[in-house]
Design a protein around this nucleic acid. Structure first.
Lengths: 247, 247
DNA sequence: CGCTCAGTTGAGTCTTGTCAACCACAGTGG
DNA sequence: CCACTGTGGTTGACAAGACTCAACTGAGCG
């Protein structure tokens, strides 16, 4: 996994997530106040950013890179409960301890705010609180969507669902849409995929092979994926959203 | 299921969920403004309150009774994604269509606010927005907790998890704690439990029988449950939070 | 060259789902 | 009063999907 050292934005105006992060709706003055309490931190792929149970003294946004939110049982079973992409928010205002492990899966840059001043600021600037509410509601929807995947879908459907989610968001970022087909690199290992989907890594591997054999996806190496027919993938995911009233 | 006709509170001061709902932090003036736009609605057990995809013209709080939030796939597989208890909030400010079906599982009373004026009010009164953010964050945590249950727990652990959740919240409301044991009536059918846990109703039934046979729970009729040893139940749920470093 | 790490594949097992029969109870109408 | 019916729940036999354990491949690296 080659992850280029991401440049840290020199100021909020240049920030790549300026329009989507907690600060999206902030006006100039609010931004200035935020700049006062912000600092950047970088983490390497594989590093744990926050340990579950640790005291959190900051909150922040992912600027670039990908992190995961995971929960682990005493016997080692782990479940991923969130995938943090650029602009996603980390930490919970009004709570001291972290509830989940946060792990960088690629090199990552975070824009952190000291927690106390951030909370202070939040109570004074409705723009931030409002944006955070929006983002939290979106995350709640995503979590509920995922509950359907975890509870009711087969292994094959789970894989297809994950691939279509990655394809979709990649589409909104740097999607390479070559001739109707979507192309991207999987940001997750087979094990991370398994943890996301409530499967074992062997099952993930088998179903990836099966989808490849059936022509639903093309694989080049282990990580480079091409989706020749997005509609087909969605059908495999059980998300055949257009009703399917024909045949 | 006998569900007494719940009395509708005559004003917010008498409201049983006054301290826990969206309006919890509101001062007198804010409450007056809310009263302007609020109205009560009652639904009978089994009634669908909101259909997924419908246009929502209200948001509101559950005053008494229980409702479920469910998602359904084209082929009929359904997954419950939320359990709505008194004080829980229904609806999403800033979105028109409902994302999930909301179904009353007992007779239920809701305190509804017309959506547009509520949104208007929310933008002006930080107390409401702030409380809603808190509640949404709590729901997100609950959803993530549930993702672990759905993704990684066995059928037996799932049942034990559900029972312990119900026991715990019942404890905070009307818990009958008779001599160290918790006693309550299941508010859900076996099918609803299955939909919550990502299981079939047969598996739910089998695991309930197994837990009964093993003395983890006592069953009287189909719904009346006694938990003689809460710690034991938590162990069965895989939530053995006290570490279990002895043996 | 040998090591490690991520991933693949195979064989066998086990949990859970499927299909079906059956029970208990409540209501209903003759 | 009693058969009849519908609903919610239980139980059994069997099948299938996913897991476990294990061997193996291939790429990258010192």
């Amino acid at each position: 996994m080659i992850a280029l050292k991401q440049p840290v934005p020199s100021n909020c105006g240049d920030c790549p997530i300026r329009n989507r992060a907690v600060c999206a709706h902030c006006d100039h003055d609010e931004l200035v106040a935020l700049e006062e309490i912000k600092y950047y931190r970088s983490f390497e792929a594989g590093q744990t950013i926050i340990w579950s149970g640790d005291k959190m003294n900051f909150v922040g946004s992912v600027v670039s890179g990908i992190a995961t939110l995971t929960q682990t049982m005493e016997d080692g079973r782990t479940q991923m409960v969130g995938l943090l992409l650029p602009s996603d928010f980390v930490g919970r205002p009004g709570r001291d301890g972290a509830a989940y492990d946060v792990v960088a899966t690629t090199d990552i840059v975070m824009c952190c705010f000291r927690k106390a001043p951030f909370e202070e600021l939040m109570s004074k600037t409705p723009h931030i609180a409002h944006r955070l509410l929006q983002m939290t509601l979106d995350e709640l929807d995503a979590a509920r969507e995922w509950m359907l995947v975890l509870g009711r879908k087969t292994a094959r459907e789970k894989i297809a669902s994950l691939l279509s989610i990655i394809a979709r968001r990649d589409a909104s970022l740097a999607a390479t849409t070559s001739g109707g087909g979507k192309v991207f690199d999987l940001p997750l290992t087979r094990e991370a995929m398994a943890d996301y989907l409530g499967l074992t890594l062997e099952t993930v591997s088998r179903q990836m092979s099966a989808l490849k054999k059936d022509g639903v996806i093309l694989l080049e190496g282990k990580r480079h994926v091409t989706i020749p027919d997005m509609q087909r993938l969605l059908e495999e995911a059980g998300d055949d959203s257009d009703g399917g009233f024909l045949t």
